[in-house]
């Protein structure tokens, strides 16, 4: 019934990508790693202050002058939040196919791969945070605005299924414009596919923590981004279902300044806490610690019951 949409281990393409990476200039100016670039100056998008790449990095990608949150790509996020060298990636080889033969989709995919230097818009795997094992997925806004196509849905579903079997918590770092139009209904129904996997993971007594980052909107907001046991957000992140321009246009009125900002969404009751970037790792570590103990006790009881039979 299903349509094969993903080329598993498409080695040719992967090798091509690897070679390309060697020659590719880092697209994100903050990600350029060679020594000279570190002292290069970049101006902050909001306060225009000139900052060196090193300064920005040392301050968790937050402008030291005005507090602007620079976008952080998915792999960097994982580095920032997990223990050194603890991350093992899963399903990296999955790449999208243009099943609907949607105009210009292949070119867009190619551009997105080059821009993000990833195969798709989400990175999944297992890592430790302050020594505690956790499954995680981290979305990348450089890959077609973090839009969710069949591969993104498949990868996130797989990580939830893996975590369910392994009794592991899941940490999700979301950034997305929503479902990927170029995959039509195949992409819309990823919302259902991921949500049901989240539900099974939850029913098995496992923890799911979401960290909402700027922006988390559309079909991602209306599915797994809103299904966490604990929902955290970065300051000033846009979180909402419909795009602000769509609403503005249909209502024909200007929107309040804080509309869909994480601070306002918290006031409305949909976010547990807003956690500044430099505190996120510690915060997540605490949450995991709190749940690890409960989990172990619960499982011990379960073992006790089964041996008692």
């Amino acid at each position: 019934m299903g349509v094969p949409n993903i080329v598993d281990g498409d080695t040719k393409r992967c090798i091509g990508m690897e070679l390309k990476k060697l020659f590719l200039k880092a697209n994100n100016e903050l990600e350029n790693t060679n020594g000279r670039a570190k002292s290069r100056k970049i101006s902050c998008k909001t306060c225009q202050k000139k900052l060196t790449v090193e300064e920005i990095r040392a301050n968790s990608f937050v402008c030291p002058a005005c507090g602007y949150y620079f976008p952080v790509r998915a792999r960097r996020r994982i580095l920032m939040l997990t223990d050194k060298r603890s991350f093992h990636e899963m399903d990296r080889e999955l790449v999208s196919k243009n099943v609907l033969e949607f105009p210009e989709y292949e070119e867009k995919l190619q551009q997105a791969m080059e821009k993000s230097r990833e195969n798709e818009g989400v990175i999944c795997g297992v890592a430790t945070i302050q020594g505690q094992r956790v499954c995680l997925f981290s979305m990348d806004s450089n890959f077609m605005m973090g839009s969710m196509g069949a591969v993104v849905g498949e990868k996130i579903t797989r990580i939830f299924e893996y975590a369910t079997v392994e009794h592991l918590p899941v940490l999700g770092i979301t950034v997305s414009g929503g479902a990927r139009m170029q995959e039509g209904m195949l992409s819309l129904m990823q919302m259902s596919k991921v949500s049901q996997a989240v539900k099974r993971h939850s029913k098995a007594g496992n923890l799911y923590v979401v960290l909402l980052t700027n922006p988390t909107t559309g079909g991602v907001d209306a599915s797994f981004a809103m299904l966490g046991d604990i929902t955290l957000a970065e300051p000033g992140a846009r979180v909402g279902f419909a795009g602000p321009r769509v609403i503005e246009k249909s209502l024909n009125q200007a929107l309040p300044k804080n509309f869909q900002m994480s601070e306002r969404v918290l006031e409305c009751g949909f976010i547990d806490a807003i956690v500044p970037r430099n505190q996120q790792k510690e915060y997540l570590g605490k949450i995991l610690k709190l749940h690890a103990r409960l989990g172990e006790e619960y499982r011990m009881e379960e073992d006790h019951v089964s041996t008692g039979k």
């Binding site: 919302m191 259902s192 949500s195 049901q196 989240v198 539900k199 099974r200 939850s202 907001d221 209306a222 599915s223 797994f224 981004a225 809103m226 299904l227 979180v239 909402g240 279902f241 419909a242 769509v246 609403i247 249909s250 209502l251 929107l255 309040p256 509309f259 869909q260 306002r264 409305c268 009751g269 949909f270």
Partner: peptide, 24 residues
């Protein structure tokens, strides 16, 4: 789904997400 300020602030995204997860 309706897009408006009130719908957003009462959790349009959460309402849809909940339906998906609960219907599953």
């Amino acid at each position: 789904a309706y897009c408006g300020i009130d719908a957003e602030e009462r959790g349009q995204g959460r309402a849809i997400a909940d339906n998906l997860a609960e219907m599953a």
